[in-house]
């Protein structure tokens, strides 16, 4: 498995786990199961954990294969990145438009903010997932 495929796996799994927990926490806040302050602390901690995990795992990966990590992307890797970003952009657009629609359901800026974040997270997940798919199945 190439360095960039491993990198895509790291991003996919990290986003899935950490933001899965994040939005579960958001659902608990909305449901009134967690207090506002405690929920905020958990949310910030999870975002911090996400950044830390991404950095630590990518540094570990770079140390395992430093030559591959420093090599520029070749044409296949660039094509995969472009195609995955294109798909993710469509997802982000749909999420953003749905966010606009949310204005008719809620006036809460916090809920709308979470919705926008959800769109960004899903787009990131789709980007990594599509990259993995192209790396596995061919492009």
């Amino acid at each position: 498995m190439s360095f960039r495929e491993k990198s895509a796996w790291i991003s996919f799994v990290t986003i899935l786990l950490v933001f899965g927990a994040y939005f579960w926490n958001v659902a608990r806040i909305v449901g009134g199961n967690v207090g506002g302050h405690a929920g905020f602390v958990i949310s910030i901690s999870l975002i911090g954990a996400f950044i830390l995990l991404e950095i630590v795992l990518h540094i570990t990966l770079m140390l395992q294969s430093p030559e591959e990590a420093q090599a520029p992307k070749d044409e296949r890797e660039r094509l995969i990145e472009l195609k995955a970003t294109n798909v993710a952009f469509q997802v982000l657009m749909v999420g953003a438009l749905a966010g606009v629609g949310m204005m008719h359901i809620t006036r809460s800026v916090w809920v709308m903010g979470q919705h926008v974040l959800l769109a960004v997270v899903v787009a990131g997940l789709v980007r990594s997932g599509v990259q993995i798919l192209y790396f596995r199945r061919g492009v």
Binding site: M1, S2, A71, D74, E75, R76, G138, V139
Partner: peptide, 16 residues
Amino acid sequence: VTRQTVNAIELGKYSP
């Protein structure tokens, strides 16, 4: 290119 790209070309999974 990377070794993985050569492998993908050989297997017909990528047209260079």
